[in-house]
Design a protein around this nucleic acid. Sequence first.
DNA 1: CTGAAAGCGCTTACAG
DNA 2: CTGAAAGCGCTTACAG
Lengths: 343, 343
Amino acid sequence: MQIKGKPNSLDIAHLAGVSQSTVSRALRGHPMVNAETRERILAIAKQLNYKVDKNASNLRSQHSGTLALLLFEDPTVDDSNINPFFLSMLGSITRACSQHGYDLLVSFQQLSRNWHADYEDSHKADGIILLGYGDYLAYRSKLDTLVEQGTHFVRWGAVLPEQPGVSIGCDNLRGGQMITEHLIGMGRRRLAFIGDVSLRAPEFLERYHGYAAALSKIGKKPDSSLQVDAISTELSGYEAACTLLARRVSFDAVFAVSDLIAIGVIRALNEHDLRVPDEVAVVGFDDIPMARFVQPALTTVLQDTQRAGELLVENLLGLIDDGHAESIKIPPRLMVRQSCGAP
Amino acid sequence: MQIKGKPNSLDIAHLAGVSQSTVSRALRGHPMVNAETRERILAIAKQLNYKVDKNASNLRSQHSGTLALLLFEDPTVDDSNINPFFLSMLGSITRACSQHGYDLLVSFQQLSRNWHADYEDSHKADGIILLGYGDYLAYRSKLDTLVEQGTHFVRWGAVLPEQPGVSIGCDNLRGGQMITEHLIGMGRRRLAFIGDVSLRAPEFLERYHGYAAALSKIGKKPDSSLQVDAISTELSGYEAACTLLARRVSFDAVFAVSDLIAIGVIRALNEHDLRVPDEVAVVGFDDIPMARFVQPALTTVLQDTQRAGELLVENLLGLIDDGHAESIKIPPRLMVRQSCGAP
DNA sequence: CTGAAAGCGCTTACAG
DNA sequence: CTGAAAGCGCTTACAG
């Protein structure tokens, strides 16, 4: 028997001398198929290099076996450089998907675009993973829309009480507190904070609250002259540090709300002949791969991207299967290196 | 009219008072539809937030509007860390796909697995992009299989004369020559080379040939006592540098065949109290994001990932549409920073 | 320019 | 345990 082009299940059925339904059952491991028959079908399928047509099977069964990852970026960020932290997340999400037998559709979105629900509506994906820092206020309403539409989704980000949908995120408050306490433990007392402190970036705000909590333990309060806004880029960190220096206030440490910002801060300090960590300690947040390689190596807070990817995928699948999923805060871990003044 | 669940094209047809065929035509911009009718259909579709079911349309038209990216890794590489260079490529490929209206399915593969053609066979993707350094000898035969099967694919990697299929790659020979000539121009004469020099890694071998070509211009030959194999990881670079140092041969520069290796080399040199670049200049290849941030900042060869992503996608689409595509070498660019001893 | 009809390749009740 | 049949939601000749 000659088969032109790719074989389909009917071809297999003819060759095996059974009906097409039986082929379909055997291939999907349906229990009610004679073991011998199943073997025969599987052997023929393998020999012909037969693969189930996903479009047909998805159309019929109305689910796609695919998840969509929407990575949205702050439009102000340099086009070609994605935050390495999200790249790590992407790696772990990809892995988690394949472990669960799902494919992953990846898409980069401008925050401004009307991305919501596109994928699930067109049946390309069973659910959506949302990743990216951006203006939270700008997309919060889109989350509501997603919930209303019954779209299955989970997001990476701050886990807040009245959040729509399911969120997986680092325990940012705890992380912010840990690293601030570490700086205090190293003897630093004038701690600057560089990063957005507004509802636009809830994860940053939480880190700031952790910073404030640590300060209050030694009877201090955040000093607004020591805080400068910045988004998560090296350039923004650099500029914010310059702004801080121009104020001519004294400080002996900088808590940069992300590693990328911290790297920019170190560059600015170097250019102003301030030695890190001797004169100014600098710490970051994320533990991106390059944190180990900057000079001095960056003390930071590790966000467990491996676990994050798994939790995002597992919860999304839970949501799809039986509507069950929960928001989770992942414990952060302090990574002490040299930039904080540790020996 | 109440529509339960997601609307389909028939729902739109009823509401517009036309046939379902006409709806389909209007939605896809078929020219032979009355302009007025088209407007009406489009308006209704928009209002109902209607999206064409991709599974149905793909099944019927037998193409998926999706490309698959297979990122395979050398199994020896630490599981959680993908080479940042490939992460950059992934970003640019994702962008290029969405510009062409294609979706991107991403999958990480172990080189050992039987990945070939899975995606296209199951109609999940119209074509495949292959990305990753690994043992070339181990997957060369799989490329032949792909060509035999008529699978549409392009790969990132060394562009060699008798290569099966279409390859897009950096002009590695030229890049290797450029950076070696630069080191020579800086007055260095004892140039070590760290990286695999075998047919297992053709892109590295080409860089080595460029290195040899530059040496021959000043009447020198590669000295095998100055070459150590390494795969593209920081650890492997570190170990290779230790091997080199243990040989107690003198050298005043190291050409590391990738940035990750170069970073490991710098660490090893630092630990042996050799000053970079004063005593030993170090250069890399790739220009990964962290190259700018290591200390001293790494002189390296930029591979234009933006352009690479575009070329990969454009050529793959060309292959799918009319079988036309060509292998292309992208010109490299020298990025002079401090690690080579430049002022 | 439009409609009726076939069919893409599966999955899944239903009947045996 | 197996088969005949319906149908998922589209696209696309074919006829008008």
